[in-house]
Design a protein around this nucleic acid. Sequence first.
DNA 1: CCGAAAATTGCAACCGATTGCAATTATTTT
DNA 2: AAAATAATTGCAATCGGTTGCAATTTTCGG
Lengths: 343, 343
Amino acid sequence: MSQPKEITIYDIARELNISATTVSRGLKGHPTINKNTRKKIAEKAKELGYTPNTFAGSLRSKRTNTIGVIVPRLNSYFMSSALAGMEHVANKNGYNLIISQSLEDSKKEIENAHTMFNRRVDGLIVSLAFNTENIAHLLPFSTRNIPVMFFDRVYNSEQFTGVVIDNFAAGYDVTRHLIKQGCKRIVHLAGNTLRNVYHDRLEGYSQALKDHGVPFDPHLVITSNLSEEAGVETAQQILQMPQLPDGIFSANDNCLVYCMLELKKAGIRIPEDIAVAGFNNDRVCQIIEPNLTSIDYPGYAIGETTATHLINHLLGHTNIHNTNTIVLRTELVVRASSLKRKE
Amino acid sequence: MSQPKEITIYDIARELNISATTVSRGLKGHPTINKNTRKKIAEKAKELGYTPNTFAGSLRSKRTNTIGVIVPRLNSYFMSSALAGMEHVANKNGYNLIISQSLEDSKKEIENAHTMFNRRVDGLIVSLAFNTENIAHLLPFSTRNIPVMFFDRVYNSEQFTGVVIDNFAAGYDVTRHLIKQGCKRIVHLAGNTLRNVYHDRLEGYSQALKDHGVPFDPHLVITSNLSEEAGVETAQQILQMPQLPDGIFSANDNCLVYCMLELKKAGIRIPEDIAVAGFNNDRVCQIIEPNLTSIDYPGYAIGETTATHLINHLLGHTNIHNTNTIVLRTELVVRASSLKRKE
DNA sequence: CCGAAAATTGCAACCGATTGCAATTATTTT
DNA sequence: AAAATAATTGCAATCGGTTGCAATTTTCGG
């Protein structure tokens, strides 16, 4: 099982009777190396089957061309889209992604952050776990001048840049839309309000109610982890309310879909009895019946934007420290699930 | 912008008046180091805020604790589930994942393989692009004794291990099920038959027809890239057939769902006019109406299995070279979309 | 043809940990 | 208490590129 010997720049140098320095520079296309020499080096490298050893280089140069990504979980429609967007941008620019999941657990998020740090990622992209309360684990990155960017689940801090949508406005829009459809008792399925996204959506909801003279009833705000199971449970809770609501605004589609199915099973008509609207514009929106009104939340674009900004910063084209927040445009996509009246 | 100096094992060594060797071993929990010394080292390391530099270590030890993953795209339900499974196993074992997408393009897959090689991944996991015809780009890994494992889209080779399901059997089961429901003209939505998964499903379909005396009609096999758009187009093709089919077996759910929506729009009743069944047991199966019969294709488990085997091999617990293929169990999940007769 | 400027190339230290082997120290055994 | 064995620790080379600065070669004007 002996490993075949690794071909190094020294091998190339020896065969060409030049120094390793020249080979190193030649391979990098360094301008001070003679064109002709460069060609010879390239040829010999190919001939010998040379492959650069990234570690050796990174050790010295302190650049790894690696971006760490920590997400709550990578198998949701939104997340995998965002990751796909990041990977695309990164790959195009010669960067690679090391991806890890916190599984919504702050402790694991901290561990992962350590790993990323040890791996000397050039930059870090994070979407926070459900229960992360502070970002002490990210401070070593700042100390080291390693840029950290949040996306989606951001942390309110002067120190880091985040890519988000205007969750308040989106929550407001959805709620207003439901009110305009005649809803008076609107349930809000909320997530952990520790996270900006859920907090802001709830605020938007409250404000819209207020602005339109609809009383805010805390009993109508159901907080959960917004999972599929939570959707089912929520439906049961709703069905047991002394007075049924006439609208639901959910902070995510996934949960709402399962809630809808359960409500339908119980004979509730949507949107006639209850108008519903979600958040994310998940693929299922166009598949469930009735089609689901939702906020279009461009995962791929968010991923691209985040990665682009981070890489531009790394390349020195821009400085993200000047930017606190990047807000992407969203859009309310109205579909049958919320249309009580013909518009 | 000067970087704060990096803390190394030498700093710890100096402060403790011992050698760097001892520090290195101490941190790794090497048994020959005195327990007491070990404790002192650990304390000092924490005190100074030491973080190991993975590169330096990897350079010397030639182990990176990194697994490369190349997938066609990472934003599909199946893929992101598989990746989630892999990440979970890898993380548990101290490995990290470098993930890249080929975007179904063989050329990009080759580039990505190079990158992975240069990064000296300890092992590689691949699911092939639609149009990859050979695996020359993976041979350097074999030469170097770097284990490569396929999953899902595997390459038929003695050389590498793959984790798959029995696509033939699954295709056979679905088709037989449709036949038993009384279908006589069953359309098959096929993918690129260069890929085992689609090839085998088609074979299973053919064989089932044959075994049950249903004639095979090549016009009923519609090959596409199985995208959402393809689903819509396929529906239009079907609607223009001189004689409508009475069943559809699609090689994936995603495409079929869009096809169904289009057919329903045209007034086709499912399953009465056309019974349909898909493949993957995607989340949408339980959401679309009627609920979709499908083959449960356990993405998360496939990811876990693949990563587990690879890591066990890396740790020397098992040797994947003894294993050619690992076949996971699948199951036909029957739902309303295919039930022409009460069972 | 000479000397200065420009273009190339090389020296040698360095990045930070790992490791085979030898050396030192502690513990037992006789 | 000396000898033998076991437990710890350290030396010094090594992994494979990168980089500041000096050295060498080439080019060219006069």
